[in-house]
Amino acid sequence: MYGEITPFEVHVEDSVLDDLRQRLASTRWPDQIPGSGWERGADGDYLRALVDYWRDDFDWRAAERVQNTWPQFLTTLDGARVHFFHVRSPHPEARPLMLTHGWPSTPLEFLKVIGPLTDPTAYGGRAEDACHVVAPSLPGFGWSLPTTESGWHPGRIARAWLELMARLGYERFAAHGTDWGSVVSTEMAREAPERLAGLHLALLVSGLRPRDGVLTPEEEHQQQANEALRASELGYVMLQSTKPQTLSYALADSPVGQAAWIAEKLRSWTDCDGDLESVLTKDEILTSVTTFWATGTGGSSGRLYHEARLAALGSTPRQGRIGVPTAVALFPRELYPTSRRIASEHYNIVRWTPMARGGHFGAWEQPELLVADLRAFLAGL
C-alpha cells in the first residue's frame, strides 16, 4: 500500500547463493598484459584472489546478520520501492539526521557510524550529541531494487527523501551526503531550505567555479589536478551517462564483472596507497558486491548518471546559493576538491574541516573522523 512502512530484513535465498558460487567457479577469465597491474583497470591477480575467497570462504549469512542488527524498512515513494535503515536513539532529545550514499555504494557504507551517532554515550560521547539516523538506499541501488521507470534523477530523489522524513515524523532534520548523496542532499536544501537544519557534505558538486571566473594560483593548480584526474577516471561516467543499458548485461550475468567494476573504483578512490585491503576488508568489499549481485542492481544503479545528465543535475552546479548552514569534511583523497572561497560562493559554509586521512568513502574508511566532525557541526547549529 502506498505510504505504508513495513519492517524488512536482508535474506538471500540459498538458490541465489548456489548459483553465484557456480558462476564464480566457471568464470571465463580475460588475458592481461604481463606486469600491467592496475594500470589498465582491475588487476587480474588481485581479482582472482578475491574471487577465490568469495567462492570458498566468504560468509554471506554472517554479513546478513550484521546488516539485520539495525532496524530496516521498506516503503513506496513516488511509485518506487525504497529500502532504508531507521535507527532511533535511546536519548529522547536526539536530532534527526539523514545519511545518503552514492555510487558504487549502499547504506552499508554507514554501518560503522550508526552506533556512535545514535548512542554516543556507549562510545565515549555525550548524550547531547545523539541522532536519530535514517539511511536509505537510493532508488535502483541494493534493497531498493531496480527502478521501473525513467526520471529518477537527484532532484526527484531529493523530493522523495523529504517525503520519507516527513512520513517518519521528522519535519526538520540535518543531512549528510557523499558522492550522489551530496548532490541529493544539496537538492533537498534547495527544494525545502526551511526543513534542513544543516547540510554536511564530503563531496561538493563537481565543477564549482568562482562567480567572477578568476582563479587564484592555488585554485588554478587544484583545477589542473582535477582535470588530470578526470582524464584518467571519467570513463565510467561517460559510459553510465550515455549507454548504461549496454553495461548492465555484463553486470547482471557475471559476478566477476560486477566485482571488477566495483573493486577497481574502491581501490582508486580510497586512501589506501594502492592496497585496498588496508582500509576495507575482503568481507566488507564482498558484502557490498554481493548486495549489488543479489539484488540485480549493478545496471540500475548506473542509470542514475543517465538520469542526472538528462535532467542536467550533478554534472554542473545549478544557479543560486544554498543558504542552509553547510559543513564540508575534506578527506585528502576525495575526488575533485575545491577551495573554501569558491565553495562559499555557492554554499553557506560555516565549517570547513581538513581531515588527516581518508578518501571518497569517509564513513567506511574513517568512521571516527566523520562522526567527530558531524558531532561538532551539529552541536554548533
Rank of each mutant, 00 (worst) to 15 (best):
G3N: 08
V10Q: 14
H11K: 09
E13C: 04
L17M: 09
L17E: 04
D18P: 13
D19Q: 08
D19S: 10
Q22L: 13
R23G: 06
L24V: 14
A25H: 01
A25V: 02
T27H: 05
E39P: 00
R40W: 13
G41H: 05
A42P: 10
L47H: 06
D57L: 05
R65A: 12
L77N: 00
V82Q: 03
F85P: 02
P90Q: 10
A94N: 03
T100M: 15
H101Y: 06
G102A: 06
W103K: 03
P104L: 06
S105K: 05
K112L: 05
R126H: 04
A130S: 04
P136Q: 04
L138Q: 13
P139K: 09
P139A: 08
G142S: 11
L145I: 07
L145S: 12
T147L: 07
S150Y: 05
S150C: 01
G151M: 03
R159Y: 00
A166V: 13
G181D: 06
G181K: 14
S185V: 07
R190P: 06
L203Q: 11
S206N: 11
R209L: 02
V214H: 06
P217W: 00
Q222T: 14
Q223R: 13
A225W: 15
N226G: 04
G235H: 08
Y236N: 09
M238G: 11
Q240D: 12
S241E: 07
T242E: 10
S248K: 03
S248E: 03
G257L: 06
L266N: 08
T270N: 08
D271I: 01
G274K: 13
L280W: 07
I285N: 13
T295P: 05
T297W: 11
T297R: 00
G298N: 05
Y305F: 15
Y305N: 11
H306M: 13
A308G: 14
A312G: 12
L313H: 13
T316V: 12
G320N: 01
I322T: 15
V328Q: 11
A329T: 08
R333F: 07
R333L: 07
Y336W: 13
P337S: 14
T353D: 12
G359K: 05
Q366H: 15
E368I: 08
L369R: 03
L370C: 00
A376M: 04
